[in-house]
């Protein structure tokens, strides 16, 4: 027991003096980083989920809707794709707070006074704009033959959308969507600029509290890399499963589905 303690004290001494990176300090604050990672994941995936829900009807309207609808949605996506996410977040957080009317409204107390909600709204609208556009592209490139066939089968427009157009559009949008997920994760660092303790927020807290140069950033970076690795792996698995029909025939002759085809 005694040697263990002195060994740890020695490690701490090395870490504080000669080591270029104060690893013991990072270890001591690891629970904060885990908390920060959870905040980052929560914001990213909640925004992606809500943004995705908004994007599907908007993409359909962009592809098939009346011109007026399509143009109105285009204006929205253009505004959100054409401006930096940081500016959008500041507008929701600092901008809205400037107005007396907003501060007195019923939305202020529970929603707009809270940085978490401001960030979630900004992220959701931002990712919804991007997702709408590439989903619209995927919907429009549905092969004409598939649509004709579904019409010939007597499918109603709703059934056709549900059973033919959307499933194949989702599949084709999958690679683009993996980029969107990773971009949204990268964009989520903006949460730290409006006082939220996400991964970068914790990194900056550590640097600020102990007057360090990079320990907080490097730890946050390692966490981000881990999360991105996980997301990439999940998408690769999904692409393997859902885009199987697009791969060269010889590539996986081992699978029974291909063998019988």
């Amino acid at each position: 027991m005694e040697t263990e303690r002195t060994f740890f004290a020695y490690l701490r001494h090395i870490s504080e003096t000669t080591s270029p990176l104060d690893f013991v300090l990072i270890y001591d604050n690891l629970d904060r980083f885990v908390g920060g990672a959870l905040m980052t994941l929560q914001l990213t995936f909640l925004a992606l989920f809500l943004g995705g829900l908004l994007a599907v009807p908007m993409a359909i309207a962009r592809a098939y809707g009346r011109p007026g609808w399509s143009q109105a949605i285009w204006c929205y996506t253009y505004a959100f794709r054409g401006t930096p996410l940081l500016v959008q977040t500041y507008l929701f957080y600092f901008g809205l707070g400037q107005f007396e009317a907003v501060r007195n409204s019923f939305l202020w107390g529970p929603v707009l006074s809270d940085p978490w909600w401001c960030v979630l709204i900004a992220f959701t609208l931002n990712t919804a704009a991007y997702t709408t556009e590439f989903l619209k592209g995927a919907i429009e490139t549905t092969p004409a033959g598939e649509i004709e066939a579904s019409k010939a089968c007597g499918m109603s427009p709703f059934t056709r959308m549900r059973l033919v157009v959307l499933p194949s559009a989702f599949r084709r949008a999958l690679p683009a969507y993996s980029n969107e997920v990773i971009f949204t994760l990268h964009g989520s660092v903006i949460a730290s600029t409006v006082t939220l303790q996400d991964l970068l927020g914790v990194g900056r807290w550590l640097n600020g509290r102990y007057y360090l140069a990079y320990e907080g950033f490097i730890t946050a970076m390692v966490f981000y890399m881990g999360i991105v690795l996980l997301i990439s792996l999940l998408f690769r698995m999904a692409e393997k499963r859902y885009l199987r029909h697009l791969r060269p025939r010889g590539a996986d002759s081992a699978t029974p589905a291909q063998a019988t085809a």
Partner: peptide, 16 residues
């Protein structure tokens, strides 16, 4: 925690 003192004042006036 804020990046600048001006941001702190902005949030104090905003009631955050």
């Amino acid at each position: 925690l804020y990046n600048t003192q001006e941001d702190v004042f902005a949030d104090l006036t905003a009631g955050r």
